[in-house]
Design a protein around this nucleic acid. Sequence first.
DNA 1: TTCGGTGCAAAAGATTTGCATATGT
DNA 2: ACATATGCAAATCTTTTGCACCGAA
Lengths: 143, 143
Amino acid sequence: MAHELEQKALAQYLESHNLKQTKQREVILEAFLEAGGHVTGEDLYQQIREHYPRIGYTTVYRSLKLFVEASLAEERRFDDGVARYEIEHKHHDHLVCLGCGQILEFESAVIEQAQKEVADGMSFTILRHRHELYGHCAECRED
Amino acid sequence: MAHELEQKALAQYLESHNLKQTKQREVILEAFLEAGGHVTGEDLYQQIREHYPRIGYTTVYRSLKLFVEASLAEERRFDDGVARYEIEHKHHDHLVCLGCGQILEFESAVIEQAQKEVADGMSFTILRHRHELYGHCAECRED
DNA sequence: TTCGGTGCAAAAGATTTGCATATGT
DNA sequence: ACATATGCAAATCTTTTGCACCGAA
């Protein structure tokens, strides 16, 4: 079993919340981490299915929600409307390639600061935000 | 019939695309413009229903898509996953109040420029973007 | 032994589609 | 007349839920 650190974090979360450690949760977390992020529940289900056909998609969906609760994952929804999960790490935003579907990440202190100023000017308190750029990545653009 | 300009724009679009001018389309466009933006198909259907109970929701949904084609409306999807339509006007982004559900608009040349630089730096061509700030508006914040 | 977990099937909610009928042009 | 539009019902699609059974603690 790889990803010891995350498995341990999950175990701690489960224990402290009186939830149970199950083989399914371990397998699903493993597959999720292995996939590397931005996966949909369906993606993961199909992938897990190859090795563990007895695990139902319901359990996959439920586990992903659980990982979010445990701060191991974040749920995102891009323009296709499907929920995607990525491994929780420091704040960032996304570039979505409409050509190959690839999802890249970016961060910009300038943008963060500017949006804060915009919100302040409108007496709005930002709790979270979503900033996505859709277009073509280096490989998919034609120029 | 109010909103002559938009009604005329729709008429022109219909004519140039060999589509038909119908009472439903006129009524739905009128209700859409009247609502002032950020409405869901359901919102609009319920509203129209009061005066024109014979118009089906299918027609409302289809008409909204049509308005988007005709550049009279834009489709948006915020975090609740429901499609909302707003009257097409100059580019802007949104602040969504999680307290009252109100949707405000903003624009920032600084942000537009900064995101362009981010994209350039990653050899990414931006075709469109989405930038939403979620939080509390002036009335809903507690401080 | 006792709750929480799992998996199936069925439900849910928003939107789309098939089809017979109605209606602009 | 002919092609498009409409409205109902049924289908879709993704995600959630009910429930009987299973299994970790």
